[in-house]
Structures are given as C-alpha cells and as structure tokens.
Amino acid sequence: MDSAPSSSTVSRTVILLLRVLTFVFLLIALILIAVTRVTEDTTDGPVEAKFTDIHAYRYMISTIIVGFVYNLMQMVLSIINVVSGKRVCGDFGYVFDFFGDKIMSYFLISGSAAGYGASEDLHTFFKAQDLPFNSFFAKANASASLLLVGFICNAIASIFTSFALPKKA
C-alpha cells in the first residue's frame, strides 16, 4: 500500500517552506540595510552616509520589519498547522491568510521599489557630483533585491493560500 502524503499536507509544507524562505530573505535584507554606512573622504572633508539619512531607505526598513514580524507569526501558525494538522484560528484562518498575504505582498514590493528607486536616483546624483558612494548604494541595492525575492516567496505563498480559500469558504 502506497502512503503518499495528501495534497493538503504537501500544500501546508510548501507554504511553510515559502514562509521560511521569506523569513530568511527579509532577515538578510534587514541586516544588510541596517549596517549600510559609508564614510568617504572628499576635498571638503569626510562625508558620511547611512540608511537613516534617506527617507526611502527608512520606508524600506519599516516594510522589512513589518513583513518580518508578520512572517514570523505566520511561520509559527504554519508549523502548528503542519505538525498537528489543525488550524489555530479555524476556518477564519484561511481568510486571514489570504488577505494578510495579499496585503503583505504589496507592502513588501512597495518597500523594494522605494529602496531600489532611491538607490538608482541617488547613485546617479552622487556620481554627477563626483562623490564616490558606490559601496553604499550597492549594499542598499542588494537589500532591495533581497526584499524583492522575499516578496516573490510571499506572493507564491499567497497563491497557495488562495487555493485553500474556496474549499473552506
């Protein structure tokens, strides 16, 4: 007798894996943007730049933190769901997952777009002023890219949660 796992077990496991991946990418993006700081010596003296100096980077870090907290909560709920096979919030959990994942996906992509856009615009501006901040903007771009990958993982998890919704609604 073949004991293949049911499709709902596979789906719950895939959602958990996607949540773990999102968690990892957001954690790395958070660490990278938080340590992004550079001091460059110019003819006018040393110039320091850090992520808190740029509003778009502050928005990006806030989206990372909110996404991180939401994803941590969802990971705990997913682990309980995979281990016990039962939902903590009952059938309401399906609706919460669906809307929470959709909203969080849009929130994460807006943070990534803000960070990437600011990096490109400011890099061009600083290059025109002959201020060499290449490493600063490279780190900020890397953080925005990791946030984008976190968004993709969260968006795919959102698709899986939308599959479960019609069955339970």
Rank of each mutant, 00 (worst) to 15 (best):
T13Q: 09
A157I: 01
V95P: 09
V95Q: 14
V10D: 10
A142V: 01
V95N: 14
K167P: 06
F160M: 15
A4K: 14
M1G: 12
S158N: 10
N71I: 11
S6Q: 10
T36F: 00
V149P: 06
M75K: 02
Y57W: 04
T124P: 00
I152K: 00
L16G: 00
A164K: 13
I103Q: 09
Y116T: 12
V76P: 06
H55K: 14
K168I: 13
I28N: 02
S143Q: 00
C153N: 02
L30N: 02
S110A: 11
L17M: 09
I33M: 03
T13D: 07
L148N: 04
E48L: 02
A138F: 03
G93A: 09
H123E: 14
R19C: 12
I33V: 13
L27C: 12
A140G: 06
D53S: 03
G117P: 05
V66Y: 10
F126T: 12
K139F: 04
I33Y: 01
T63F: 10
E120F: 11
T9G: 14
L21G: 06
A142Y: 00
R87M: 15
L30Q: 05
G45R: 08
N71E: 10
M75G: 07
T36L: 02
T13Y: 06
V24E: 04
S145R: 06
A49P: 04
T63P: 15
A29S: 01
Q74V: 13
D91Q: 07
L27N: 07
K86T: 05
D121P: 03
V149D: 04
D91T: 09
P166K: 01
L27Q: 03
Y57D: 00
T13V: 10
I33S: 01
K50F: 14
I80F: 09
A29G: 01
I31E: 07
H123N: 13
L77R: 08
V47L: 15
S7Y: 14
A113K: 05
A118S: 09
A128C: 03
I79S: 08
V35E: 08
S105Y: 01
M104Q: 06
I28K: 05
L77Q: 12
V14Q: 11
